[in-house]
Amino acid sequence: MSDNIAATDSLADSTAEGTTDTTPSTGRWGEYTDLTRNGLWDNNPALVQLLGLCPLLAVTGTVTNALGLGIATMLVLIGSNVTVSLVRNFVPSEIRIPVFVMVIATFVTLIELFMHAFTYGLFMALGIFIPLIVTNCAIIGRAEAYASKNPWQLSAYDGFIMGLGFTLVLVLLGAMREIIGQGTLFDGAQLLLGEWATSLRIELFAVDYPMLLAILPPGAFLGMGFIIAAKNWIDQRREQQRKQAPAQKAQRARVTSQ
């Protein structure tokens, strides 16, 4: 099973340095641990694979929008991964991409209708970016790279954790832009969660003039750049610490021998 993962993830791994030298865990839950680490950090769809940047950059003006689109994407990802995994043995490989796209489009339509019915305000706020989830490369990427080669339970978990990784980055970027831009958090949360959520709105500081740059698209690019830089910095530091660790042990041995 671990061989299987290494093979299927090789597509994305070529961009991710972190995954190449981490040995896959073994055992019954090892697979799930690997998936978790990949989805949230080592192979995060937004930070490492850099997939689905269009919605990522377009709708992260506020935490609410980011959370709404993130959850919608996650649900589509889980649904499409499970379905693709279930039909994987019946689909001829020549036409697998059109089939995957049809599956994804079905789930996006479902989500869109649900949002239209239950979170109308958010539906209006996200606009074209809900139907555009179909074109989010992260979804078809997971269908192709993972779900089409693995059983449905694992695929469902992969969809969930990849969606979660994507959502976390969306929310982080949304929070950064909302705080810098207008000094609030969870502005308009009632669009997503219902009327009670109006009280969730936190005003961190009052601004007379919003910093429009953060709210406009350039702010998304800048913020994304900073998040990716921060991730690479953390990875680099970990790498250095790992390299230094054996050297420290040797030093200690010498000290005790004296």
Binding site: Y209, L212, L213
Partner: peptide, 10 residues
């Protein structure tokens, strides 16, 4: 340009 986009009034 950052300033012009962010604070058009000022």
């Amino acid at each position: 340009v950052v300033l012009l986009i962010s604070f058009p009034v000022q």
